[in-house]
Write a protein that binds this DNA or RNA. Sequence first.
DNA 1: ACTTATAATGAGAACGAGTCTCAATTGCAG
DNA 2: CTGCAATTGAGACTCGTTCTCATTATAAGT
Lengths: 150, 150
Amino acid sequence: MEIQQQFEQFLSQRGMKHTNERREIFRAILDMDAPFDVDKLLFYLKQQGEKTSKATIYRTLQLLLESGLLRTISLSPAAARDTLYSLCGKYRAYDHLVCTGCGKVRDIEKQQICLSCQTITKELGYKLESHSLRIFALCPECQAKGIKTC
Amino acid sequence: MEIQQQFEQFLSQRGMKHTNERREIFRAILDMDAPFDVDKLLFYLKQQGEKTSKATIYRTLQLLLESGLLRTISLSPAAARDTLYSLCGKYRAYDHLVCTGCGKVRDIEKQQICLSCQTITKELGYKLESHSLRIFALCPECQAKGIKTC
DNA sequence: ACTTATAATGAGAACGAGTCTCAATTGCAG
DNA sequence: CTGCAATTGAGACTCGTTCTCATTATAAGT
Ligand SMILES: [Mn+2]
Ligand SMILES: [Mn+2]
Ligand SMILES: [Zn+2]
Ligand SMILES: [Zn+2]
């Protein structure tokens, strides 16, 4: 099924209206070519002549999170600002390797991580839903430059 | 070495002063019996008659993070509020299993996770520093109660 | 189509965690 | 002790996020 239709179906299931704003916001999200924050989305919509309000964007993002179509990304263990969002499945990996020197982020795809999560939850009788792994490490370039962290 | 002395040594290495405020804040952190936020720390210190300021608490927490004695915890992938802190080593695991139903958090200790992180960073020529894994799953109790998420 | 009830939106005020400023205080080297 | 740079406290400030409420749009019922 088309992803737009999945959202509309989600709205219907909840007895919510299919508004023009919800459509436009979702379309803008589909246009994003990297994880985005609210500012970026708002700017993009303004550019296109939409006068969507900040409040409606936050409300729609919340709906998309609840629908399971969108997820948040937290790259830094501290960062309590500027939430990043990404469509589920748009980028293959949910796991990230973050360079503590230059901040560069790589996606990780390691079957072993998924298997470990399955093992852990199975052993404890939990029903696995998702996971998020962040590895903090110094990239080869930063090692060469002699950048130190901590 | 005593952990208090490790902090004082860190301050000395940086040529920073051993102030009463830094001592009292660290003592309060040692008294915490669970991951804490700044509010809780501030309240605890007020209770004890200390009139430490919010600014100094943030400044000292930052120093403790840099010293490697303290870490932050991010349990929810969304939460952009109220950072949680915990002494390194106070709770054994850095990885958490979070119930998406009741929010209950368990520590995870799985050697396999550490090994995977080592493998991943080694393959890419990175120098591993740390990692943080959060597994989101429904606990047995919540499954029994028929609580659904998403 | 038209009406109507009500869900949704927009504008901006409010909120709150975290940061910054600067005058007053404190630690500590000499 | 003294002198001075480092540190602190009070509170203003920032800015991402949430809330409020008057206005507007959706969709069910006719
Ligand atoms: Mn931004
Ligand atoms: Mn709190
Ligand atoms: Zn790097
Ligand atoms: Zn549970």
